[in-house]
Design a protein around this nucleic acid. Structure first.
Lengths: 193, 193
DNA sequence: CGTTACGTACACAGGTTGGTGTATTTAAGC
DNA sequence: GCTTAAATACACCAACCTGTGTACGTAACG
């Protein structure tokens, strides 16, 4: 176990340059935005020489794409897997964002890159669709009459809350949660009716 | 009427350089984004020398702010003034966006500028608040039980639809309209109940 | 006419950006 | 010790950005 980690070629020095670069991206892109973050600054934060950064990622665009791809497993971390909740509760749990929150970088990326062809924009779309699909699936489990519709509606609420929080600087997720509750109640035939 | 228009000092030549600059801003900022539009290109489109541009606007930031301020009267043009509609119908009419649509530049600006202190970000907030206020007011006219809540909820729907349209390239306003209908029905005690 | 004020054309400063070239250092494996 | 490969430091490039300085043109007024 003399070698700490084995990279593509078998060796490693400073404990994962790639990881540090992506970690710095995550931090800086979120704090300052993508376009306002230069590669010089990013490499300084990552404590990586610019040369090595460009050996791991052929361009900044590729780095941005990888940065976005990294979120897929992270966001909505344990919302849909919580077996201790009913499907209905799981749908509502999606709106309990802890204020500090990741605050969906996909919208920001789509706006900043401004090119629907950009691979990162593709990832953004894929992710949005995936979220809607999961909501739809859970809505179906919860017994919704029209799960696709409810899933799409809840996804729209999440995006609305994220966008509004961004512009207004005031948390809009409680409002979204309130709407979600109404929609869910309307879409799921309760036993009491 | 020899002088076509009288400007600050009394004279005018090419029929409103200021107008052409703002018009070009509107076009280019929307098409390419703010940061990706240079002053050179903007002046070329506006058919205005760069020198004069900087005589009308001391900086690009000021131009951006003015560009955003210009929308206040434009957006939601005749939605709240349509006396031929009931308040309830007016609330729903806000979601009938003609697809091509202006597609709210405020979210984009807030993301691109990325500085809540920027005057343009201020305008964005003001506008969002104004829209919510108008919705609230109309909700009150419509007899909603909690007009503030309904107004805020509908505003969130508008933002959600705008953001989602931006990311997905597919119109989300019908979905938002469907949600709005549910919310309105739930918030306004109908005579038939 | 001359004055006045706006407009133009064009170069240029000063800065930042993404990205590279080069020579050097460090560590691992034989 | 030698080789190999990754990482480093650092200078550098070309492109682009916002913004300015300068000299010239041109229209409306007296």
């Amino acid at each position: 176990m003399t070698e700490l980690e084995k990279g593509p070629q078998g060796r490693r020095r400073g404990r994962g340059a790639r990881e540090r670069i992506l970690s710095a991206s995550q931090q800086l892109f979120r704090e300052q935005g993508i376009n306002r973050t230069g590669m010089d600054q990013l490499c300084a934060v990552a404590q990586v020489s610019k040369r090595t950064a460009y050996q791991h990622f052929t361009s900044k665009d590729e780095l941005v794409a990888e940065y976005l791809r990294r979120f897929d497993p992270d966001v909505m971390p344990g919302v849909f897997d919580r077996t201790d909740l009913t499907p209905r509760e799981r749908l509502l749990a999606a709106f309990e964002i802890p204020a500090s929150a990741p605050l969906c970088p996909y919208i920001a990326a789509a706006v900043e890159l401004h090119d629907p062809q950009h691979p990162a924009s593709q990832y953004a779309r894929d992710y949005k669709i995936a979220i809607a699909a999961r909501l739809t699936e859970t809505a179906r489990e919860a017994g919704a009459i029209n799960p696709e519709q409810l899933g799409e509606q809840l996804a729209l609420l999440l995006d609305g809350a994220a966008a509004r929080t961004r512009v207004l600087n005031s948390a809009s997720f409680p409002t979204a949660a309130a709407i979600a509750a109404v929609l869910i109640d309307n879409a799921i035939p309760t036993a009491s009716e």
